[in-house]
């Protein structure tokens, strides 16, 4: 693994493609998680009436409980999306990139 190998990788268009697609996905998903969570915090702070409303008229389960559990599940789903994308696309790109630079 010499400097020339690093140079070959640097110049390989696959490398730019790998970094761009992975970074785009990672930052997009990070922003989505942050937005979902901030929205949840703000709903708790300012949307008390909405969150405290029963899901069905006369019931006790509130909208807030469903949203809260939904935020937990969304974190798991977003994590799974990244792992799926990385296991398929990014790993394949990395393998081709490393083999091509030998």
């Amino acid at each position: 693994m010499s400097d020339s190998r690093l140079d070959r990788i640097r110049r390989d268009p696959l490398f730019a493609q790998l970094c761009q697609s992975r970074s785009r996905l990672a930052w997009t998903l990070s922003v989505i998680v942050l937005a979902i969570y901030l929205a949840f915090i703000l709903l708790v702070a300012f949307g008390g009436d909405f969150m405290a409303a029963p899901l069905v008229a006369g019931g006790v389960t509130t909208v807030g409980i469903v949203i809260g559990i939904g935020v937990i599940l969304s974190a798991i789903v977003l994590t799974a999306i990244y792992v799926w994308k990385a296991n398929t696309t990014f790993d394949d790109l990395t393998r081709r990139l490393l083999e091509g630079s030998k």
Binding site: W27, L29, Y37, G68, A75, V83
Partner: peptide
């Protein structure tokens, strides 16, 4: 009651960030 769920949510949402930006 419900207020406790805020903590459950807060403790979990750091994990996607660990994955997207740090782990690998």
């Amino acid at each position: 009651g419900f207020y406790g769920l805020n903590y459950s949510v807060g403790w979990l949402v750091g994990w996607p960030i660990v994955l997207f930006l740090i782990a690998e």
